[in-house]
Design a binder for these strands. Structure first.
Length: 358
DNA sequence: AACCCGTGGCC
DNA sequence: TGGCCAAGGGT
């Protein structure tokens, strides 16, 4: 692929040398930088997708303690993996990682492939993650263009492309191809990301401390704060939902969510979505009757809110105590003892609601 | 291409 | 408070 952007050869040299030197001195001591084990790099890259370093660190430490090797993860039951992921969000990442790790264990004898075509076919490994693993773990020259790199490039070369577009990422990858030094692609890719995370930040970049500000076009023009350009995201849609805390003696009712959509396949409280704000609680009684609930007590506990990236739940939490368990019930339901609650992986919205109940 | 998919921190 | 952001991938 050719790029219309012509990179100045001497600038490229400056960028390579300055960034590598700077990275050597300023790189953070992060747990996934202890060694270059492809499995460890892989897990870190998946956890770091759309997730901050500070958030990931404790999850990564626990995960590696529980699943030290690729084989350990491959042999683990999915519920253990999801439990280790509880609270991290984007739970498909955990399932895809588990699926892909099992595939590597079986098809590649436990060795993470270093072939771009093979590694890219694994579940959950897209263009960025493939490039990151290949460059960091195998020192192969391959672009790893994430949000940091796009921001750094947008400023370095004063690019006004919308970084939300797929075409822009491809353009950035083409630029990366021209800049990555063959000798140390892993360190160079990481230096770009490290710079974006610590100096070339989205707001208030510290250009005076930047090792490449002398060759930065945005800095020269004083437009570093305006870049990168990104189309505004739509605000999350507000939805009223009911969470039901259903008990019967010391038994507690949990529900497995549908296999598609938000929080797919995750354990939850019985949830009534798409309810009209004011009708929700009046609609509840007939539904309970339909479910064969013999109600001993029902009361509203309170309201809470939970904001996903594209959905805003206005939650009403209601407890329902039953005289006896209904004879037949939804196949998504499971009665558990209250002391078993901690064994299941609940998304944060439900974990917080459950904490209000017990 | 546009939308879906979590969470927490910051101002 | 609302908006924005963070080492993206799947569909």
């Amino acid at each position: 692929m050719t790029v219309d952007l012509k990179l100045n050869v001497s600038d490229v040299k400056v960028i390579q040398e300055e960034l590598l030197n700077w990275y050597q001195i300023h790189k953070r001591d992060l747990p996934w930088r202890k060694n270059r084990d492809p499995y460890r790099v892989w897990v870190s890259e998946i956890m770091l997708q759309q997730t901050r370093v500070d958030t990931v660190i404790p999850y990564y430490e626990r995960f590696m303690k529980q699943f030290p090797t690729l084989q350990d993860l491959a042999q683990a039951p999915e519920e253990k993996v999801l439990k280790a992921w509880e609270g991290l969000g984007y739970y498909s990442r955990a399932r895809n990682l588990h699926t892909a790790v099992k595939e590597v264990a079986e098809k590649y004898n436990g060795k993470v492939p270093d072939d771009p075509k093979k590694i890219s076919k694994l579940k959950g490994i897209g263009p960025y993650t493939a490039g990151a693993i290949l460059s960091i773990a195998y020192n192969r020259k391959s672009p790893a263009v994430d949000g940091n790199v796009m921001r750094v490039f947008a400023r370095l070369f004063a690019l006004k492309d919308d970084i939300a577009l797929a075409a822009t990422r491809k353009k950035m990858e083409a630029i990366a191809e021209q800049i990555i030094p063959v000798d140390s692609p892993g360190d160079f890719n990481q230096s770009l990301m490290e710079l974006g995370a610590t100096i070339c930040t989205p707001i208030g970049p510290q250009c005076l401390f930047c090792p490449v500000h002398a060759v930065c076009n945005a800095y020269k023009q004083g437009i570093q704060e305006e870049l990168p350009y990104k189309k505004r995201a739509k605000p999350p849609q507000k939805v009223s939902v009911l969470f039901l805390g259903v008990t019967c003696g010391n038994q507690f009712l949990i529900e497995k969510r549908a296999e598609r959509g938000l929080l797919k396949g995750m354990w939850s409280l019985p949830t009534l979505e798409n309810m009209k704000e004011d009708q929700a609680e009046t609609d509840l009684l007939p539904i309970c009757k339909e479910w064969g609930f013999l109600i001993r007590d029902m009361r509203k506990i309170g309201n809470l809110e939970h904001i996903f990236s594209h959905r805003h739940w206005k939650i009403t939490l209601i407890t329902i105590d039953l005289q006896e368990k209904p004879r037949d019930f939804s196949s998504n339901w499971k009665w558990i003892r209250q002391d078993q609650i901690k064994e299941f992986a609940f998304p944060t919205a439900y974990r917080k609601a459950i904490d209000m109940l017990f």
